[in-house]
């Protein structure tokens, strides 16, 4: 008896290792995000010194036991500043994303549900917003309304809104023309109920993921604007501002820019990894 074997499957061990790796990434990401959130709520838990306290004698201390992340040109503890900066960065990220999402949902619903004429209007507006480089748009906004946290949030939110608005509109259109919405109409549900109970939840579902990743993006955005001197004024403990302040000393005291930068990267990376994980979970459940 001859046998033909077509075994193209991966050997068992390799499959297992891949599976474990898939789990480890999101675990670390969620762990870091949890740490960041706690740090934002109660920074005292991790950082014991005042982020604004000036100790001239301790200036430019490299990272060590006394100062984990070192100190800056005025002797302020970088670790404390990074931890205290979490609140502001996270707040900007969340608030800007929430603002972007609100604008996007309003525009997206208007376009997706409002009929062809309104849809054309919304599209037209989005095209214009897209044509502007978002950073220029944000800069313009800050230039008009002045720098500071408030305008920073609004600028970041408005800069990222058009992208989301397009997604919302696309989702709303897709769900609106789906079989289950037609079935709901045929059942005799009132329009408002179909919109609230079926159209919105289904259209927003894929956006949860984008939103998670969006927070990380917004933090990068806000940091960029702060770095350009348009956000929180120094010596406020804000990651972008810290980067900007450490820029002059980067050749001699790398830690001034490295640690705030590291936190920006880790936070953004974590939101992206967490978002991708959520996406896989949600889609896995759907298909």
């Amino acid at each position: 008896m001859s046998a033909l074997t077509l075994e193209t499957q991966l050997p068992g061990i390799r499959v297992q290792r891949v599976a474990r790796n898939v789990r480890l990434g999101p675990l670390l990401a969620f762990g870091f995000l949890l740490f960041v959130i706690i740090a934002a709520l109660v920074p005292q838990l991790f950082a014991h010194s005042n982020p604004l306290a000036i100790v001239p004698n301790d200036a430019f201390h490299p990272p060590g036991w006394g100062h984990w992340f070192g100190t800056d040109q005025s002797g302020r503890d970088i670790f404390s500043r990074v931890i205290y900066g979490t609140r502001q960065s996270l707040l900007i990220g969340l608030a800007a994303t929430a603002l972007a999402m609100s604008v996007a949902i309003a525009l997206g619903l208007l376009g997706g549900l409002g009929g062809p004429r309104l849809d054309r209007g919304v599209n037209w507006l989005l095209e214009i917003l897209f044509a502007f480089p978002s950073l220029i748009l944000a800069l313009l906004f800050v230039a008009v309304f002045g720098s500071g946290i408030g305008p920073l949030i609004v600028a970041t939110g408005l800069g990222t809104a058009p992208g989301y608005a397009r997604m919302v509109r696309g989702q709303v259109l897709a769900v609106r023309h789906s079989g289950y919405i037609e079935a709901a109409v045929a059942l005799g549900h009132p329009t408002w109920r179909i919109i609230v109970r079926q159209l919105l939840p289904n259209a927003m579902r894929p956006l949860i993921v984008t939103l998670t990743m969006g927070v990380g993006q917004a933090i990068v955005w806000a940091s960029a604007l702060s770095f350009l001197g348009l956000g929180a004024p120094p010596p406020a403990p804000e990651w972008g501002t810290m980067l900007s302040m450490g820029r002059d000393f980067v050749a001699n005291a790398w830690w001034l820019t490295f640690f705030p930068g590291l936190f920006i990267v880790l936070t953004t990376l974590s939101t992206t990894v967490a978002g991708r994980y959520l996406q896989q979970r949600l889609e896995g459940r759907l298909s």
Partner: peptide, 11 residues
């Protein structure tokens, strides 16, 4: 010869 990945064909 296209029974698919992981298929074991005997005869």
């Amino acid at each position: 010869g296209l029974a698919g990945a992981g298929a074991r064909v005997t005869a």
